[in-house]
């Protein structure tokens, strides 16, 4: 990896970029910090504390408990009373799998500040880490009754329902996220995925329109193009009206053409017919078979 060669300011900028773009990249964050910044923490100025928080979470993600303890020690000495730091402390306990102690810390934060959403979310995360998905869903529903406009929480509830295989409820949650963000192609694509997974003629029709909307919002969304292709193939082979089937067939070949255009552009190779037919055969196998 190139991370060792970064200069001080490059390392600082790359960490800031990852923070702003909401990337996980925990291993990379820890490496950049250890190789480039660890000796010069004092030079970071007013970014020091936020970088320490970022590195703290990343090191928990990598199981580097010692580094996390070093980070939080500095943060505690800076803000001994802060609720935000207490939440980080509970995360450290969580990473050590001391879930009950972590819950105690979270409860004490909630007692001191009832409007603080962070620790309530962590409670759900603890249940999820313990594998108690059902309880996590219940806790999350309670949370959402109090904080209805929390988009992240709806998204996470959708993930929890997907883990349980409850696709209809997951679709409902994703629709809620869509209401907050109606022009996001990613949400449309995800809803298409969920509807296609549920299956059945009606749901596949709905999935098709979600995928179509996703492509309208961003023509380069490859996954939505694949999804549209699969939906159209399914409709073309179904017992729908002939006009509808013909239209679906046309749309499927259009999607396939778009896909090969995009892959051509990114690989720099001109498509050959064998490649396309191999793709077509592969997708034929992927299609949901209704028995």
């Amino acid at each position: 990896m190139m991370n060792e060669d970064l200069s001080f300011s490059e390392a600082r900028d790359v960490l800031r970029k990852w923070r702003d773009d909401n990337e996980r990249k925990s291993d990379e964050v820890v490496q950049v910090f250890e190789y480039c910044l660890a000796d010069k923490v004092k030079k970071l100025g007013n970014e020091k504390l936020i970088i320490l928080e970022q590195v703290f979470i990343a090191s928990l993600d990598c199981g580097r408990i010692k580094l996390a303890e070093d980070c939080i020690r500095v943060l505690i000495s800076e803000f001994p009373e802060s609720l935000r730091i207490m939440k980080l402390k509970s995360m450290l306990l969580e990473a050590l799998e001391r879930y009950d102690d972590a819950l105690d810390v979270l409860e004490s934060i909630i007692k001191r500040d009832e409007t603080n959403a962070g620790p309530r979310k962590r409670k759900v995360a603890i249940l999820k880490a313990k594998g108690q998905i059902g309880d996590a869903i219940k806790e999350m529903c309670d949370y959402l009754k109090k904080f209805m406009s929390d988009q992240e929480a709806w998204h996470e509830l959708c993930n929890l329902y997907l883990m349980e295989g409850d696709y209809n409820k997951a679709a409902f949650c994703m629709e809620e996220v869509l209401l907050h963000n109606p022009y996001s192609h990613l949400i449309h694509q995800r809803l298409g995925d969920i509807r296609y997974t549920i299956g059945g003629q009606d749901n596949i029709e709905i999935a098709k329109s979600y995928y179509a909307q996703a492509i309208k919002l961003n023509g380069n969304n490859l996954r939505a193009l694949y999804g549209l292709y699969l939906c159209c193939n399914h409709i073309a082979l179904s017992k729908a009206q002939i006009a509808k089937r013909k239209e679906a067939q046309k749309l499927a070949s259009w999607a396939l053409q778009k896909i090969s255009e995009i892959t051509e552009k990114s690989t720099g190779k001109s498509s050959n017919l064998t490649g396309v037919s191999a793709l077509e055969a592969a997708f034929g196998n992927l299609d949901i078979k209704t028995n």
Binding site: V30, G63, S184, L186
Partner: peptide, 28 residues
């Protein structure tokens, strides 16, 4: 939407619900 910038990886990365009980501690 900010096309090109947002991908599913960053969009679906929800920091408030991170859980640390995964293979990361063995891998890294």
């Amino acid at each position: 939407t900010e096309i090109g910038k947002s991908s599913w990886d960053t969009f679906a990365n929800i920091q408030s619900f991170y859980s640390f009980n995964h293979r990361g501690k063995a891998l890294f």
